[in-house]
Design a protein around this nucleic acid. Structure first.
Lengths: 147, 147
DNA sequence: TAACAAATTAGAATGGTTCTAAAATCTCTC
DNA sequence: GAGAGATTTTAGAACCATTCTAATTTGTTA
């Protein structure tokens, strides 16, 4: 797992190891800011640039899945770095893995039908989680920055 | 179609009408910048803010689908404003509608299984389109800003 | 025509991400 | 070990799509 960094000729420095640990330990799909905060608890001088740089490395070696947002910070999944469906609460911005069935069409079928060389897939379901529904007691929702 | 704006108590001004026309006439899933450019050909003084404001109105009335990106400008689908799968070329940033089967699980099933009140869905397939594959003759790809 | 509301504008502000140049750290050879 | 050269890290500037703000313009109604 961590060996794939070595293959690229880059070192697994203490900061990078800690970042990877934070990423794998969390099921919250943390943002760069949250990762930064956490890594800083062990290496207080760590800069944001290092977090971004390291995540870039991890993306290149397929060890982290990036979930992009336009109005909010990107989020990262270090537990299941392969594309898989997510369940996203537009209220509290919680992101959960969705264990249910994969989208029906396999990449190969779509590739064959369209001529695209497919490299990735994204499937998100947006809604309001049970906790947020309970908190607002059926009323309408507040401003939201995730779709 | 355009009546839904009236119901909100907002006027269908010439700029807004042109924007809607541009949106429906294009199958390219244009960005705000492209829409701006196009509207400007008819109303040269149009500001970016107006494009953003109008798109916000259209989103609220469900007349446009926003496709968000973190590293690039958002794109808009005014032809099929309901959530549907897209095929995205990571090279030339072309976006096509994918007519194939919807992801298997209906929203209701996921809603029932998870307790979420679902409001939206996103399904994207990322790859290299046939034209870009031909252009690069099998070599590796250049920098890209879409996932 | 006057008065009020809605729409539009230009430009500033925001915020996540990327870039840059310099400082710090590591590695390898002698 | 000491020193040269590469890698890593840092702080802060730069970037850019988007949002906000205050002022101007346009439209509507009396």
């Amino acid at each position: 797992m961590r060996a794939s960094l070595a293959e690229k000729g880059v070192a697994l420095t203490p900061r990078r190891a800690k970042l990877l640990e934070v990423l794998v330990a969390s099921d919250r799909h943390p943002s760069v800011g949250e990762i930064h905060e956490e890594v800083r608890r062990y290496f207080p001088s760590t800069s944001l640039a290092t977090i971004y740089n390291t995540i870039e490395l991890l993306k290149e070696t397929g060890q982290v899945l990036e979930i992009e947002f336009s109005g909010a910070a990107n989020r990262y999944d270090g537990r299941i770095p392969q594309a898989h469906p997510h369940l996203i609460c537009v209220e509290c911005e919680k992101i959960e893995d969705l264990e249910m069935v994969e989208p029906s069409e396999p990449l190969e079928a779509i590739s064959a039908a369209t001529g695209y060389r497919l490299v990735n897939r994204r499937t998100d379901y947006y809604g309001v989680c049970p906790q947020c529904q309970a908190r607002e007691g059926g009323q309408q929702q507040a401003p939201q920055s995730l779709p």
